[in-house]
Amino acid sequence: MAKDIEISTSEAQFILEALKQNGRLDGRSFDQFRDVEISFGREYGDVTVKMGNTKVQCRISCQIAQPYEDRPFEGLFLISTESSPMAGPQFENGNNTGEDEVLCARIIEKAVRRSGALDVEGLCIVAGSKCWAVRADVHFLDCDGGFIDASCVAVMTALLHFKKPDISVLGDRVTVHPVDEREPVSLGILHIPICVTFSFFNPQDTEENIKGDSNSEIAIIDATLKEELLRDGTLTVTLNKNREVVQVSKAGGLPMDALSLMENCHKAYTITERLTEQILDVIKKDDAERNKYATLLSSENARET
């Protein structure tokens, strides 16, 4: 992800040598994902995700817009991932055409939007004329590797957390009820894709990698910034709890044996399961926290059915 920052030769050699001896700078094992810390802001759909020093904020907003002519029954959904110098000096302001930025944006786009994680048909208000336009703004606050993985968790958690104002439709007239008047409604989330990024290192020379049979390439999960700078190749696997591969992106880089790539996919699945659980858990806890008094205020009678 970084062009301008360089790592000193001695440090680079140290990291690579450590990897050959099964060690990482932060003491993690090769297939250990960093702990993910998810916190919510004041409003619905404001989520900050921290993984080590990496920090990403996602903010969901919505407004009423006109649907595309060729898709009258679907709402609009846009994910904007723009980087700024805040995350590190390697990011330029307003320049999102860098290789890594494009790849990152495309992978999140494919993982979340293309895979239909958000039910866009549920965003339709009046077919052909009015629909909700949901926008996810991903802000990269601090970069220590793993932007794709962190952003994906942030976007999905924020989508699950977000609530849009309730509406009622009478003919062609649409009334938007303010949040204090009517309970806002959640978005329809069809599945939760989770991205897991692997970084590959080649401990031997290139010929052994291409011609040899030893398959001794090193694969580590969730690289930090320094590891990302030194890696020879990368693979991002996106899975969901239903054992579906949502997206895989190994855009070149170190050639890797097909079987070891499959193995990586299976490793990613266990992480996916765990993260999905964690996301649903924090959402539930936050929901309970926000609706502490809901049962007190409820005028519902305990009825027998």
Binding site: G41, D46, M86, N93, H139
Partner: peptide
């Protein structure tokens, strides 16, 4: 000197 303000809320 680059000064970047990100409005969080």
């Amino acid at each position: 000197c680059q000064i970047t303000c990100q409005i969080l809320e």
